[in-house]
Write a protein that binds this DNA or RNA. Sequence first.
DNA 1: CATGCCGATTGATCTGGATCAAAGCCCCGA
DNA 2: TCGGGGCTTTGATCCAGATCAATCGGCATG
Lengths: 253, 253
Amino acid sequence: MTANPILRVVEGAATDRCATCGIRQKAVCAYCSPPELVILDSFKSYKTYEPGEEIAAAGEDSAFVGTVVEGVVSLSKTMIDGRRQMVGLLFPSDFIGRPYRPVAPFDAVAVTQVRLCRFTRKKFEALCDDSSNIEKRLLELTLDELDASREWMLLLGRKTAKEKLASFLAILARRAAGLTDDPQANTVTVELALTREQMSEYLGLTIETVSRQFSQLKKEGVITLISAREIAILDFARLLDASGDESDGDALY
Amino acid sequence: MTANPILRVVEGAATDRCATCGIRQKAVCAYCSPPELVILDSFKSYKTYEPGEEIAAAGEDSAFVGTVVEGVVSLSKTMIDGRRQMVGLLFPSDFIGRPYRPVAPFDAVAVTQVRLCRFTRKKFEALCDDSSNIEKRLLELTLDELDASREWMLLLGRKTAKEKLASFLAILARRAAGLTDDPQANTVTVELALTREQMSEYLGLTIETVSRQFSQLKKEGVITLISAREIAILDFARLLDASGDESDGDALY
DNA sequence: CATGCCGATTGATCTGGATCAAAGCCCCGA
DNA sequence: TCGGGGCTTTGATCCAGATCAATCGGCATG
């Protein structure tokens, strides 16, 4: 816990009301009415995590669930001999935690500094029972996560190293383009929140292979490395092409 | 459609009432009250599919959702060049279809002969809105599927060919042991519903590698091949060991 | 009983990505 | 300015699993 406690209090007073929450329209509370938000306000608590800090551990008691307000969280599973696979990446407005299960099925770790809006799992389950608005939104979010995770199974099971990296970068580029709402910029700059090692864990590769594929895409003129942790997409169409997905690019970009 | 129409009618009259449904306590309708079941009875329709028959196609209109009553269904995604990955296997009582989305995200194909209890997607969505019992159970099922699919991501991204096959056989063996409710039988016989090719699509391998791993496990005395499509587990502890998962075996077996 | 077909097995070889091994780069602190 | 540590890149080699290629075996059909 390195956060300054005085700063925490100031944040709490100024910005921690649901009414002013920037991600509410996409989060699990999206469908809540103003009176319901008042109830949520009274039960939620915020917590900040530093990069690398553990949020939940697979196999251990999962006392909290909630929403990612800021930052990026990784979900992963580790085998006894140390092999590790990331099974999800959570961004702001994504739901985190496993309702209706006392034990967390996966490790959750803060990739960047992370701010969560939390409820105790028990309380959240009770809120779900009371408010079909929360339950309905959670169902939608869970169905979307399931689709995404199955899509990732195709990547892990069948794609080549280059296709894997290109797919990942295309997702980040879409996110970045969507967030900046830049209409048809030919060049999008993408912050890489992950280290090469974290990317390798997400993509089912080694760190060296990830690095080599970056070099390859650079050599082909698809991307430029601004720094190790920031790239520019020079040719999004070719990136999509390299990803092995049928190009639905123009609709989203 | 090869099913005999007369047979279909007889089935409908005799066994198609929710009250006598053998899988209801686990399906999406598990929490429905008797009056709700009457409503479901009035909206549902059964349909039988032959092995290999397509139930839904990725990218096409998804008009129905429902429950697998009998048989096994595969969910998969195919790349433009033909590489294919199975992203799920559905057994009796599993939910099939994608509510709240007009287009199916994955191909669904009958592996064995399959019998579905179906609702039009629109009607089912309306039922969800009316009955929080259905919505709640669908949420539970979806959360479970999400956990399972993330577990499979670990298999696809990090496990060796032998670990993949052992994991798959262990799952089938647990199912078989659970269904027969055989307490501590040292030898369990497992029907393989899938061909080697289908297994390879599920495990992210080739057909040859799957076959070689079968031979390997046989040589090591872990399993016996009764026929190409039926095996006996001779040593479940060693099978679990070969799967690369920490052994939680005794609890489940 | 031959024939043919489809799935499964087995063998030989190839290769993409892992592993092993150095550098290189960048930032931070002395 | 100089080290030093943590990422990242790059090179050399290895190997698990893919690919290519028969062969086999069970079963249905003529």
